[in-house]
Design a protein around this nucleic acid. Structure first.
Lengths: 280, 280
DNA sequence: CCTTTGCTGTTTATGCCGTACACGTAGTAG
DNA sequence: CTACTACGTGTACGGCATAAACAGCAAAGG
């Protein structure tokens, strides 16, 4: 059994922790409260310690550092929504299921906007984040997409949700900090607009009211992304139909008794293909 | 003529600046060199000043602060690629033009990865950034998209390019900082993978090699996004065909002598629609 | 009993960061 | 000569993460 202290930290069993004093759980919860209120930039070890009534350095007895604390916070946030084991839309088509999963990610970032602010590509997922990832991936089984495509689609949607949530939380923060609404701020940049007359498309769209009644950025984007995925799935469907044979030996495929579309004509061909994939 | 010091700063005429000593241009160029090498986090006023051989505070005689310096850097970066006034693909269809514009944004972020790291929604665009925006918007004229949709599409693609560039630059930075490649780092998280056996979809995709030959994240996403936009444009096309009349009065549309598809039957109906849009 | 060990929390200090403020110094217009 | 402006400097403040040494206490082992 390999051990990795940072992995253990994220996948540890929940302590009872009835004792007074500091504890991982208390630190994480306090940190989440601060980040909910002030964003991830506003989260500092000092503030967490102050809120709990301890010195800054006391935290380091329980958490290796700020980065690992953030990892723990993220997984704690995912744990809140994992309580819905059977979401609506389980018996639906892939599109409904995938859309539902994306909306869950969106809702998570509405509740905890700082989740979208977490940067870096080496954050270890905890059990709750993995459960969500697993579920989102499972959304696309049976669509005929290749494994790498399933992963790419889920990754793409994840980055989309994060990007939208990020611009939204940044807007909100700047509005709160300055007391000026986004519309008002841009509206009073007169000196800028005076320079835009020489740009014809910009001016035309402006006159036509394009900025007066903007699209809902998340809803609009989600539709496009799903349409794009749908196009890919249809493409794969067609190629599967026209090949109409086992990709390993070419024999025509007998329909499976379960009705589920099969890819290989036999277990043997399936194994052969698997070995080839595995050995590169 | 309204004046706004921050707007003036960005849209100022280029100085000759042959004099010795500090100058805005020199500061901006030095800052870009540092950010190219160390990223936006690594950019500090001290480092810029050191590189130029002046004290930190001397910079503040020319730039109000770090944020405005970043705005200037971004516009300087956009100025580099604006030198191609007639890109290939000008006579092409909207899809080629839009894709080309997206790839230009991507190339810009390959040259200057820190551009993707700029956060915040209140960055004033300079003349070069605006020129690029104008060009990207113009890509979609004649597609039948509504103004708000044109803006939404361009915004969506911009966020997509930024998100992809951001994950890429973060990967690179962590690889450089730690000396461990992304693959190696994730590969040696054995303690994590041991916990993933209970997640069936994850395990299956793993076995099938989904992570061994991943899709190119940018290319894959770009295809999906464009397919999504194409679906929208087709949708609008159909509704335009089936309505087959002026949306204001319903009269059938005479084809324009220029061949460009027209929306309104007459100037009067166009004005009426414009007034309604304007008054809410 | 005493001592050792390990866990928990504290204290102090280092080195970054942006930038406010007071101060020089030089050139120029009155 | 003088006043004013532009430019550059030096010092200082408050913020950040965290390294290192230290203090209190409880359980374990002799």
């Amino acid at each position: 059994m390999t051990t990795d202290p940072e992995v253990e930290l994220l996948w540890r069993e929940e302590d009872r922790e009835p004792r007074p004093g500091l504890s991982l759980g208390r630190i994480v919860r306090a940190a989440i409260e601060i980040a909910d209120a002030e964003g991830l930039e506003g989260l500092s070890m000092r503030k967490v310690a102050d809120r709990l009534g301890f010195t800054t350095m006391s935290l380091y007895r329980h958490v290796p550092g700020r980065d690992q604390l953030v990892d723990l916070m993220v997984d704690e946030a995912y744990s809140e929504q994992a309580s819905t084991p059977e979401e609506p839309g389980t018996g639906q088509g892939w599109r409904v299921r995938l859309e539902t999963a994306a909306r869950q990610g969106w809702q998570l970032r509405r509740r905890h906007p700082w989740v979208a602010e977490v940067r870096g590509t080496r954050h270890l997922p905890g059990p709750n984040a993995i459960a969500y990832y697993e579920h989102t991936l499972s959304t696309l089984t049976g669509t005929g997409l290749r494994p790498s495509e399933v992963i790419a689609v889920v990754g793409m949607l994840g980055r989309f949700v994060d990007a939208e949530a990020l611009t939204l939380v940044e807007t909100r923060r700047e509005e709160r900090r300055s007391g000026v609404s986004e519309q008002d701020w841009w509206g009073s940049r007169d000196a800028l607009y005076e320079r835009l007359n020489s740009f014809p498309t910009l001016s035309r769209l402006w006159m036509e009211g394009g900025w007066d009644h903007p699209e809902d950025s998340f809803e609009f984007g989600l539709r496009r992304q799903l349409d794009g995925v749908e196009a890919l799935i249809r493409e794969r469907d067609e190629s599967r139909d026209e090949s109409s044979g086992c990709p390993e030996c070419g024999t025509p495929l007998e329909p499976a008794p379960s009705g589920r579309p099969r890819v290989y004509c036999s277990r043997a061909c399936q194994q052969r293909a698997y070995r080839r994939r595995k050995n590169g």
